[in-house]
């Protein structure tokens, strides 16, 4: 796993991908930080929360080449031919992508230091959002791994990852629309309006339960809960397992 991790991590800096991702992250986080400084109030939690919206752009950039590039070049045969498990391959690449996220995040740590120098506060909520950031990053990078494993085209992989993350970011909006649609439909079917609303709301709440953003929103206020973190990690494990199964399938089909 260590060898895979090292190879994958260094590959980010042997081509422009890593630099572009870090540059993009630096620029976006810098804009958020400077906007707050110019207003005389700096809340790092607000900056990190805003940065989460850019997972949709950054995660596909970071993960699109993880497996698809190997398949395209045919270098994936190395994994099948060597005495390493697919688990090591998946985890090595996943950890390499997460490490790149950590390097990107150094920008925010610099902003925290700048905030302290400017006489501002870095509250508990800020650290809460940092924790959540990495757990959400783990979930989305795992999704990116899966997207990269299903195709040998980096572009398709990026699009699939983008769509996945977009759906997750829009879960609450989609569930709300579904609630309205179901309630309207049931009302037209002569179900009592309050009963129809109850069914619609239950459906909405059920779908919203899957929204990692809603689950982790209280961290920014300093209310830390273990359950949302377990949710993110377990879902990340699920997507990594899917990736592992896909690679295993290919290994067997190769043999």
């Amino acid at each position: 796993m260590q060898a895979i991790f090292k190879r994958e991590f260094l590959s980010y800096f042997r081509n422009p991908t890593g630099y572009v991702a870090i540059a993009l992250f630096s620029f976006i986080s810098g804009v958020f930080f400077i906007m707050q400084v110019s207003q005389g109030q700096v809340e790092i939690a607000s900056e990190v929360t805003s940065l989460r919206s850019f997972f949709i752009v950054i995660v596909p950039i970071v993960t699109m080449g993880l497996f698809s590039e190997d398949r395209k070049r045919g270098t994936d045969v190395i994994y099948y031919a060597n005495p390493i498990t697919m688990f090591d391959v998946v985890m090595g690449k996943f950890l390499a992508a997460m490490s790149l996220f950590f390097i990107m995040f150094i920008n925010v740590f610099i902003h925290m230091i700048a905030t302290k120098i400017l006489g501002g506060k870095v509250g508990v909520g800020s650290w809460g959002t940092v924790i959540v950031f990495f757990f959400l990053a783990a979930l989305f990078v795992a999704i990116g791994c899966l997207a990269s494993a299903i195709t040998d085209s980096q572009i398709i992989s990026a699009i699939v990852c983008f769509v996945f993350i977009l759906i997750i970011q829009l879960i609450s909006t989609l569930s709300s629309l579904l609630n309205t649609a179901v309630t309207t439909l049931l009302t037209k079917m002569n179900v009592g309006s309050e009963q129809a609303s109850s069914i619609g709301s239950a459906l909405e709440n059920g779908i919203n339960w899957l929204d990692p953003f809603t689950k982790t929103k209280d961290f920014r206020y300093g209310s830390f809960s273990v359950a949302p973190l377990i949710f993110c990690i377990s879902m990340a494990i699920f997507f990594l397992y899917l990736t592992y199964r896909l690679l295993e399938k290919k290994r067997w089909s190769q043999s």
């Binding site: 620029f27 986080s29 400017l118």
Partner: peptide
């Protein structure tokens, strides 16, 4: 979450903006 207005004078904000938004991303 207010910052010290003296330390965050407009000149230092401009320097910071330059570093965080332009210099670092461009260098990368």
């Amino acid at each position: 979450f207010s910052i010290d207005s003296e330390r965050a004078a407009s000149s230092s904000v401009t320097v910071m903006a330059l570093i965080f938004v332009a210099v670092i991303p461009l260098a990368l």
